[in-house]
Simulated assay, not measured.
Amino acid sequence: MMKIRAAVARFTHGPLSLETLEIGEPQADEILVRVVATGVCHTDIVVRDGMLPTPLPVVLGHEGAGIVERVGSAVTKVVPGDHVVMTFDSCGGCPSCQDHAPSYCHEFFPRNFFATRTDGSTALAKEGEVIHSHFFGQSSFASHAICHERNIVKVPKDVSLELLGPLACGVQTGAGAVINALKVGVGKSFAVFGSGSVGLSAIMAAKAIGATTVIAVDMNDERLAFAQEVGATHTLNPKNINTAAAIMEITGHGLDYALDTTGLGPVIKGAVLSLAPRGTCGVLGASAPGSEIVLDEVHFMSGGRRLIGIVEGEADPDTFIPTLIRLYQQGRFPFDKMVKFYPMERINDAIADSESGITIKPIVRMESGSQ
């Protein structure tokens, strides 16, 4: 058993504790990665706070980037020394996975939230105490993580590895919603409701693919200013204006595409009311289990409008993450502008700054000066 350093969630709503743990050898289909850096995502916070049935104690983290150290005997996708990003896990065999739609894997929930291998075992322990691992197939709030071929993506070595972790979830979710799910086209109008890291990633993607009207809606004026810096053509603060009326004035007929990142029923209803006939609104999450969406049925039906759920940007990570990297290298997808780095010792500060909105996208470095 190898000794590693990890941030352990032991108590609901409590701070993570930095601890020395033991990690087992990778199994035949597993990969041991030395984690260089990991993004902090809203989902980590939701799970820490007990809103999903992930068992404690657990090592969270699901936007890991690092270097392959060891591979199991059945692994052929990567070799030691490869630079990689770890993303969400999937089974590879269900109808969705066979259709290259792994974000809708029939086993998505257990493989990503149950924090064990499929046989119920874990890779982590502390002096005989079971510590749950394999959160999103990785548990990357740690110096080392074990993942699978299905959720590892090889990335080029000529781009800063410590920057790439957020492409695994938050950035992929926002950009993929625009490019893969909504398929926003050149010259179309698009609005995102909620300008956090996911919403801002969507704005960057909309600009990159040629949407000509890109509207950011948020109650934080600083976020709106930043949205304009990275691609929004218009910004709206619902505290100061009737959003639906303003969108109609900007577009003339309503939106071709809208994206909600808040999970709030009233906001989603407003986004749908802002759609033009045949417009589509995507929804990325729910505020709580059992949340409901109420729509104006006549408005929704009579205009042929559509409402769709979206998970992980409907991405096939093996192809989509390298695409985002190329767009970044070309200067067309500047997601690096919204990140701030923290040392592992300050992981709780990174989480708190994400919750408060001080930092748009925190990235935790496992070691100072890691590249």
Rank of each mutant, 00 (worst) to 15 (best):
R111F: 09
R111D: 06
R111K: 13
N112H: 07
N112L: 01
F113V: 13
F113M: 13
F113I: 15
F114G: 06
A115V: 02
T116C: 12
T116A: 14
R117G: 10
R117E: 14
T118S: 15
D119N: 14
D119S: 11
D119E: 12
G120Y: 04
G120V: 09
T122N: 10
T122S: 15
T122G: 06
A123L: 11
A123N: 14
A125N: 12
A125D: 05
G128V: 00
E129F: 09
V130C: 05
V130D: 09
V130R: 13
I131F: 08
I131T: 01
H132S: 09
H132T: 10
S133N: 03
H134S: 08
F135D: 00
F135L: 01
F136I: 00
G137F: 00
Q138G: 03
Q138D: 02
S139F: 06
S139V: 03
S139Y: 05
S140A: 13
S140C: 03
F141A: 00
F141E: 00
F141C: 00
A142T: 02
S143E: 07
H144G: 08
A145P: 05
A145R: 06
H148E: 11
H148V: 01
E149I: 08
E149P: 01
E149S: 12
R150A: 15
R150V: 14
N151K: 00
I152P: 01
V153T: 03
V153A: 02
V153L: 04
V155M: 04
P156I: 07
P156F: 09
P156H: 06
K157T: 13
D158Q: 13
D158G: 12
V159S: 10
V159W: 11
S160F: 07
S160Y: 07
L161I: 12
L161R: 10
L163Y: 13
L163R: 13
L163G: 05
L163H: 11
L164D: 09
L164T: 03
L164N: 05
G165K: 04
P166G: 03
A168K: 08
C169I: 11
C169Y: 02
G170S: 14
V171E: 02
V171P: 04
V171N: 05
Q172I: 09
T173H: 14
T173W: 15
T173F: 15
G174N: 09
A175W: 04
G176I: 02
A177G: 12
V178S: 06
V178Y: 06
N180I: 04
N180K: 09
N180P: 04
N180E: 05
A181E: 11
L182N: 06
K183V: 10
K183N: 14
V184C: 12
V184L: 12
G185F: 02
